[in-house]
Structures are given as structure tokens and as C-alpha cells.
Write a protein that binds this DNA or RNA. Sequence first.
DNA 1: GTTGAGATCGAACGCTCGTTCGACACCATT
DNA 2: AATGGTGTCGAACGAGCGTTCGATCTCAAC
Lengths: 207, 207
Amino acid sequence: MASITRDQKLDALLAAAAQVFAARGYHQTSMRDLARAADVSLASLYYYVESKAQLLYLIQSRQFDAVIAGMHEALAGVTDPVARLSRFIDNHLDYFASHMAEMKVLSHEAEALSGDFLHDVNEKKRAYTRALMDILADLERSHGPAHANRRVAAYALFGMMNWIYTWYDPLGDVGVELLSQNIRRLFLGGYVGLPVADAVLPRASAG
Amino acid sequence: MASITRDQKLDALLAAAAQVFAARGYHQTSMRDLARAADVSLASLYYYVESKAQLLYLIQSRQFDAVIAGMHEALAGVTDPVARLSRFIDNHLDYFASHMAEMKVLSHEAEALSGDFLHDVNEKKRAYTRALMDILADLERSHGPAHANRRVAAYALFGMMNWIYTWYDPLGDVGVELLSQNIRRLFLGGYVGLPVADAVLPRASAG
DNA sequence: GTTGAGATCGAACGCTCGTTCGACACCATT
DNA sequence: AATGGTGTCGAACGAGCGTTCGATCTCAAC
């Protein structure tokens, strides 16, 4: 029989919870809703998780770790700043589009946590933002001067990318490739006046 | 004595509620929190408002009306597409920066309403989005082929602008003018490859 | 077949929520 | 002095919340 480990069960609970949080919002969702969605009793939920807040924290923390790990993998060995920025954007949007519910929870429920949970997630956010701004600094050196303040530009890019949870449908007529290419063009053209130039590096290769 | 009309009192309640909603989030905020912030009793709150949902609706609806009215005023008599887009962006960001709490509530609590309330606000959103996309269509006709899908570009611009509630401090070292100019440059440069060119039309004049 | 740790659950606790209701204060008009 | 509409409020209602607890089930190990 396919026996399930405790960790696998927790993963399943988090996945189910992410769907409900994305659909109804964190505060609006009750632990009873989550238990029902995961097909366990309310009390059993607490066998795997200490609190509703920890549940949200685990979702946010793990998703952020995955995005950051993907970024490091995508940037490994790539030195050209334009290529690095392209990889950064592609990684962010690819992951977002293939984990819409989880990333909506990460983007939209950023203020729902508090204390150590909040501090921990904010630490990851700071590291990730720093990574983007370092790429922008490289880009200015190689393709400078910038047409906008670096910090404003970084948050503008995050805005373009994270806002998609309000409108983007991965199954609609705008594919992830088109989305990625469009946002790459919008940002590169606006920030350093780079012409359309799409043939920088085709895709992030898998090692 | 300075006597207060019922409408003025309602305005004050909405203003106080917007601050609390922005700080704590809609679902996290109780009617008792709102009563305390507005310095009235819980029961008195219900003398001016039918429900918590209607309160949120009134905030969102009125703010959206103000943004749209500002847009029409800013666009009146302006025909050049670049100038029209600049006015659109300036109006949005100026209003956002001077009404951060209210606009955060409008941006972040978009899914908190339901039924007729939600439908009504979504109607305004549709009209506002349409207005932007019409400007983008004009821009394509006058300044050559777009570097991105029009719909993606429109939502990317809204993303850049609306995301500011997560990071922008109007009292910080990035003034509204710099913010506006930066986002104008980022978008125009990216969408139609327009060079920096800031001297299109200096400011939206007041009649 | 007994054991015991892992897994599950129904039922309940204390609390807060949105909303309602009846009573009271104010005050310009009679 | 009596009236009645406007504004205000304390107190309560029923419902739902996050969380806990003790009891039960499962099943590999002995």
C-alpha cells in the first residue's frame, strides 16, 4: 500500500490550505474550512500544525524558498546583466504562473502574519529584493545610465510581476512565455532603453 | 456653533474607517474597532451605515469615483497620446500618494465585497481599465508598434502603480514627482521605445 | 494476543464577531 | 409644558471563531 509519511501529509495539508486561502483570503478562512478542504477533522489538523498562523507561515516560507532557490539556479554561471535580469524575471513569472494559488497567498497576505513569522518572511523578501537590485546595479554599469531611480524601478518590476494574481489566467490566451517576454521588454526598454532584443538567452537551461 | 450635517458625519466615519481598514485589513477589523477610531458607540455607527460591507463599499466606490473624475479632468482637451498617458499616470499616482490609506483599501480589499457591492465597484474598474487601453491604442497609432501585448501592458502599468501601497512612503525621500516621472519613463520607454523626453507637458493645469 | 506509539476524531471551552433593540438625551417647534 | 424627530448609547443575541482534550482506532513489534 502507498503509505504516507508525516511530512507528505503536511505537504498535502499546506497545498489544500493554499488553495482555500487564495480563494477566500486568510482571515476569512476558518480552520474548519481548511479541515473540510483537506478531508480531515478539525482536531486532526492540529496534529500536524500548531496554529492557523503557522500554517500561513509555512506556505509563505516554503514558496519563497522555492522562488529564491529557482533564482539561484537560473542565475548560476550567467554573467551578462541583461541575461541575468531576464533569468530573474522568467524564474519569478514561471514559478508564479505554475503556483498561482500559493503565490497569491504570498503576495496578498503579506501583512497577515506577525512576530517571528512575519520577521522571517520579511527577511527572505529583503534578500530577494537585494538580489534584484544588485542585478540592476550591474545593468547600469554595462548598459547605463538608468532612466529611473533604482529602488523605484525594482518595486515597479515587482509590482508588474506580483500584480498578476489579480488578473492573469495561466489557462487563458496569454501564455507564460508571452507574459514573460512582454514584461521583460517593458522593463528593459523602460529602465535602460534597451531595444526589443529578445534573443539574449533563449531559456534557462536545466543544468 | 459649528453644526455637523449627517453627510459630513458619514464622511468622517468613512475617513476614520479607511485608516483602520488600511492598517489592519478589512476582515481583521471589527465594527468595535471602527467605532472606537471614530469616537462613537458601536450602536451609533449603525445609525449612519447599514453594515460593515456597505462601509467598505462606500469607501471604495467614492475613492474610485474621485480617481475617475480626476482622470477626466486631467485628460480634458489633451489630444496627444503621450500627453494623455502622462496625465493618466500622474493623476493616478498623485491621487494615490495623497490618499494612501483609502487607495490601499481600494487596491487590497478588492475581493472583500460581494453581490451588488462587488459588481458596482467592478463596473468602475472596467471603465477605468478601458480608458487606459483606449489611450494605449491611440499611442500605438501615433508612436509605432507596441513592444508588448496591450492588455498585458495595461495590467503591468496598473501593477506598477497600485503596488506602491506595499512600499511607498509619501513622506520619504522619493517625492511624488520623482515617482510619477520614473513610472512614466519606465512605461513609455518599455511600451513604445520612447526616449526619456520628459518635457511633453509639464503638469496637469488647473483649468 | 498484548502492547504502545502514531493518527484520528467528536465535543466542548471561552471569546469575539456583526447586528439589533429599547431607552434616553437633545432641542427647535408648538 | 408638551411634542416628536434626530442622534446616541448600553446591553444583549445567536453564531462562528481558534484551540484543546480525552477517548478511540490502527497496526507493526514482540
